[in-house]
Amino acid sequence: MEDKLVVISKMSKAFPTGEGDFLALKNINLSFAKGEFSGIVGPSGSGKTTMLNIIGSLDSQTEGEVKVMGYEIKELSSKQAADLRSRHLGFIFQTYNLLPVYTVYENVEFPLLLLSMSKEERHKAVMQALEWLGLTDKIKSRPAQLSGGQCQRVAIARAMVKQPGLVLADEPTANLDTENSLHILDMMKKLNQELGTSFIFSTHDQKVIDYLRRVIRLVDGEVVSDDTKAR
């Protein structure tokens, strides 16, 4: 049980609508181990992002249990949830979501400002993350001066800088061309292998699916398949 980062059992999520509740996720039972490189795949509206939000403690389930790093999501206060995100989780988004007024260095440094770290420690960690992603020559650039691929690399550096146990990546290649997508995926795979960081993707991009070691298919809020490729 200790090597399980995420354990989901009998989890459902409903959203209220004008005509009653809409069940976005139905009776989900899943677990993710340390070091996994897995993805939740499915068409739009299948519940992928909702599941990532719940795992990321940005939302909570309606029924069932979701434990992340041993913490039951539904029982977390907003402070505890924020603490879980700041210490243990990293997020990567389809639209990068870099803070446009800050430089590459400052964007990557931002998550560390929420942790009790000295300036020297932050500098060391930021430079290391930028080195992993090959961005040391861009530290003073602003997001607007970077290509899409570079922006996503900055976003990955930002997610990785605090060396979280789990990175949640929501459609990370949706805005990238094939070459950049493959480059980004290579990098994430390398980080997964070298640092042991777990990745959970939400995607319907076949390029991403091809990289995944474990593919969980979601259709209309239900898990229809859960396949792990042989190493």
Partner: peptide, 16 residues
């Protein structure tokens, strides 16, 4: 809102 969203995701609290 986008900036606030990412800051929440990174681990800031709303009150922060």
């Amino acid at each position: 809102y986008g900036e606030f969203g990412i800051r929440l995701a990174i681990g800031e609290e709303k009150k922060h």
